[in-house]
Design a protein around this nucleic acid. Sequence first.
DNA 1: GTATTACCCTATTTAATTAGTAGGATTTAC
DNA 2: GTAAATCCTACTAATTAAATAGGGTAATAC
Lengths: 135, 135
Amino acid sequence: MLSKKTKYGLKALTYLAQKEDRNPIPIGEVAQQNNISQKFLESILLTLRRTGVLSSKKGKGGGYYLIKEPSKILMTDVIRALEGPIAMVPCVSLNFYEKCDDCPDEVSCSVHKLMLKVRDSALEIYSSNTLADLL
Amino acid sequence: MLSKKTKYGLKALTYLAQKEDRNPIPIGEVAQQNNISQKFLESILLTLRRTGVLSSKKGKGGGYYLIKEPSKILMTDVIRALEGPIAMVPCVSLNFYEKCDDCPDEVSCSVHKLMLKVRDSALEIYSSNTLADLL
DNA sequence: GTATTACCCTATTTAATTAGTAGGATTTAC
DNA sequence: GTAAATCCTACTAATTAAATAGGGTAATAC
């Protein structure tokens, strides 16, 4: 299940991308227009800023704005930053790999085998879609 | 993230499928051989029985056994029974559809649009893989 | 320079879900 | 009858997600 964090993050990014200009948009506006708790959204946008997807301007007239073209913002990056691993089990994760403690042999593990295919298909979608594709 | 329930269920099914014959195998054996809590596995196998994937025999010499050829057991059915919806958001789920309460218009929703693609790719994998493919 | 705006950050609380446990009832083989 | 096994309900513990609280800090308009 997709977390609200990711869902809200995607909606916020979409909202910013839809604006013609790239002027800073205050969090409050984004939150209100998308039915998101403002405080919750704050932390989400902060994460996205650290990821390098958007930047912010403080003070009056400040807010958040994209620093890349929507067509350059890959879903892989957004999902990994907000949701975490794309893989459904750590033992098939590229960026968050971890060994299962209950599984003696990864190679012969049926779950591993299946989830590898699922990961690849998800990765195929996320890496071939950008923010521009969601508009 | 894949739940342990699903993970254990898949491992148990694999274990049963690997046996040459289709004699009942007691839960205890399946649990032990796969490092699964026996009590937890009980409820998982019960679910799979209700789904029609396997059957059980009570009493001494009893246990669980497959009632279909592994090549006839689709991953879509197993995943839906144990994990629930394949879709990552209810608004793109085929079998567990639900409207988002925060989203005014599904058609124009960017999250909806992306998750539709993700669902389709996952469905493609799950519906083209059977238990036999995991062995 | 000052007031205002809005980002920045940490900690806490609440709610929901998942994972696992407990205990007993029922069925069957021998 | 007894032992071995499934079946079933309810409860508890642990983890994670979601949201809230509250203040701190920086930048900007005027």
